[in-house]
Design a protein around this nucleic acid. Sequence first.
DNA 1: GCATGATCATGC
DNA 2: GCATGATCATGC
Length: 488
Amino acid sequence: MNTYDKNDAKSIEDYAQQLIGHTFREVESWDAPSQVQEDEASYGNKSRKGGLGNLIEEKFFGYKVNSDERADFPEAGVELKVSPFEKTQKGALRAGERLVLTMISYEKAIESSLYQSHLWNKCKLILLIYYLRDKALPNNLDYRIHFAQLFTPPDEDLKIIESDYKTIADKVAAGRAHELSESDTMYLGACTKGATAEKSTVPQAYYAPDIKARKRAFCYKNSYMTYVLNTYIAPGKEEYEKIITDSNELKEKTFEEVILSRINKYAGKTDKELCRIFDREYNNNKAQWIDLTYRMLGIKSNKAEEFAKAQIVVKAIRLEENGHMRENSPLPALKFKDLVSEAWEDSELFTYFDETKFLFTVYRKVGEEYVLKGAQIWNMPYDDLNTTVKKGWENIRNVVKEGIEFYKTETGKGLVIKNNLPKKNDNEIIHIRPHTQQTYYVFEDGEVFGKGRLSDSDELPDGRRMTKQSFWLNNEYIVSQLEDKLKK
DNA sequence: GCATGATCATGC
DNA sequence: GCATGATCATGC
């Protein structure tokens, strides 16, 4: 085995590439290149987070793990990260986790700019070691390393990361760390640290000693790392379009300001006029209002690179003439068995709102057409998520856990299956509703009900099946979150 | 008028 | 074939 020059990033990368194709178990059996020889039998322990990273540091690079504010290879300025990826059903890669960079300290003043911060040491040059997480394997040590590559965010991303840093630092410095959420920012996030909220909530000693906040760390978001994987590490055929093609645009305005100004420029036009401007068929169905949003942003497809990296979801909000929003807004599908097995902070629903930003484009009906009012970038306030949504989620989960009761009801259109799940009015923010093509149930006695097929249904914890459901955002809640000027 | 269960339409 | 945005039909 070759060795490496700790002063030279390229040499460290070359050395690391010997890992490619090997499992952690194999690496563990190699001779460490230096003094670290003590046996760490727990590297592969699934409950020990970071075990695999420690193995690489100690058994492969031969240095002792530390929690230094400097980079792991200080002379070369390289930070080592060992992280999992997964393959989606379509074969694209997805980061298994956000990339945690360094803790946010509440004990001392926070550096006001990224380039002067200790974070910069940890995020400017990273040696990414990516392994495939195959949950079918019994032991983490059997996971295999696929990539080992240096990574530095490109300039255009650094502009956004710089602005993300400022957003987080400003909130901390204002004594508002307790209101932080990963979805406050685009690529660089402030993620929670620690096993549970109870154990990991501490006073904001420096800026607001009387107010406790979750421990948090700077991270590159999962969505950002997924993009990095598919673009720099293992380029695939995923095709995204950049909204911002000239990064000089970010010198004077933030990303959000650019987005909003591009859309607001068209405020006052109707959906019909916009369809004409962008040469789109005006047909009032399909995803017309979302398509128009992307056209106003200046891209031809509905795949915006920046939105993928920052996990921004476009939602078209249409208000009726009286200001009411007629329909509720669906969220991604729900899996009952996950719902009952996950803790709140690991749940699909929490994670979705904690990490997702929304771009609302708001229209209001006038006569037969909808007039564009403008746009708003929104993420769910921390309190709403952790009180109201959490409560709604728990109530739904409890019914699913205990076994949903179904009632066949005869209606004018034939039999309909009613249930005892919480209803829309039981929670101010979310509710649960069917969301698929057709109805499909399988009851306890094996009876099948509905015009759909198996794939229209989802298995309940007790083995029965129910028509696929989604969480939905209550229309009134969305309206309540809109800026006044967009509602008038 | 609106909640609820059901379903349509399209693009990937 | 499925996920997701959009919408419908009934009954209270």
